[in-house]
């Protein structure tokens, strides 16, 4: 085991201990009460049908409330397709 591998082991142990400790310190799974429920989600659940007309709350969030997010996602997909076609253009012959 050389020095670089030892540093990697130390880093892995620190991150692993951090993650496991955080997992034990989280609030219990599925336990939302009045105080720690996010207001944004409550608003969206209450007003989805009146504001967007959609029955599906997730689609309403994706395409209406957070449309910019979807725009960036579409840009990422477009860039990936362009990159894959660009990479394989030279290999194809």
């Amino acid at each position: 085991m050389n020095k670089r591998n030892f540093a990697a082991v130390i880093f892995f142990a620190i991150v692993g201990a951090f993650l496991l400790f955080t997992a034990l310190m989280m609030h219990p799974f599925g336990n939302f009460n009045e105080e720690n429920t996010p207001e944004m989600d409550e608003y969206i659940i209450d007003n989805t049908q009146n504001e967007t007309g959609a029955d599906n709350g997730v689609t309403a969030v994706v395409f209406d409330y957070r449309g910019f997010d979807t725009l960036g996602e579409a840009t990422v997909l477009f860039t990936a397709v362009a990159g894959v076609i660009l990479v394989f253009r030279r290999l194809k012959k």
Partner: peptide, 27 residues
């Protein structure tokens, strides 16, 4: 119902079909 959401669904659906099939086909 739902205003512009179905139209956006169709646009994004076309985009995802063409994009994923182009990736798989080229690879």
């Amino acid at each position: 119902t739902a205003g512009v959401i179905p139209l956006m669904n169709f646009a994004v659906g076309l985009k995802v079909i063409a994009g994923l099939f182009a990736i798989v086909l080229v690879m």
